[in-house]
Design a protein around this nucleic acid. Sequence first.
DNA 1: TATTGTTATACTCTATAACTATA
DNA 2: TATAGTTATAGAGTATAACAATA
Lengths: 141, 141
Amino acid sequence: MPASKTALDPARLTAAVERLFSVLRHGNPPNDISLTAASTLRRLEREGPRRLTELAAAEGVTQPAMTQLAQRLERDGLAERTTDATDGRVVLVRVTQAGRDLLARRRAVRAEHLTALLRDLTPEDEALIAAALPALERLAP
Amino acid sequence: MPASKTALDPARLTAAVERLFSVLRHGNPPNDISLTAASTLRRLEREGPRRLTELAAAEGVTQPAMTQLAQRLERDGLAERTTDATDGRVVLVRVTQAGRDLLARRRAVRAEHLTALLRDLTPEDEALIAAALPALERLAP
DNA sequence: TATTGTTATACTCTATAACTATA
DNA sequence: TATAGTTATAGAGTATAACAATA
């Protein structure tokens, strides 16, 4: 049974993703950090210490924006900035334990919120989403 | 065959939605309006003219924030503000044709971007996502 | 001279507190 | 007095342009 006619409407999927994101976002803890801040911390946790330029490119922001974000993260104790021993120009950013703790707390809150949403769904709907999850992950790796 | 064990990991779904949203967002047209601005315009298009207080509550921002957003939208020609005839305190906001045009353009760009992403997916993956789409819509109505 | 990062400046977007106008 | 909205002020977050330090 070839899936030649999938009838997946991009506009509909886009709208669903946006609404889902919005719902998840409103379930955030108060005084939550920004999207870019969270994404940068996650990246540092996942990939280890990284350079400013590298982070700016990866997060799709300018170098000055990343400079300031790193300064805020450092001020809030979520990340540290060190200089590279072999190249005096380079600034390395790394996540602190407090940063890791914040990410863990954030994940727990969001998971709880999503779990509450899932309770209103039928087991069939939940199974369909579970089945599509790997495909969604491949769509945005 | 009851779906009692769906094994849907909330953290994984949250992460997938966030990454997907981020990817979709980076495919936005340059000088794109903000999340709240877009959401507010969509609401006005969908529900018709609304009051400031109502919009602020619906979008999850404060009244002053919505006042300023409405002023920016008006300045940019995307919305209009009128006073209610029966209650002099009330400000009604409505989307303009330029606002509708912008929403349509935005949808087209995003759909194109998503379509490009979908080209890298197998038909099976696309079918799985298509099958889960109604469930995702029910998850965040 | 090229690369890495910072500083200067300006704008959007948001919040809280204080205010004005209408009911 | 209560409600609807605005203004004042402060801070996060972003961009571009100009700058400093290192290679």
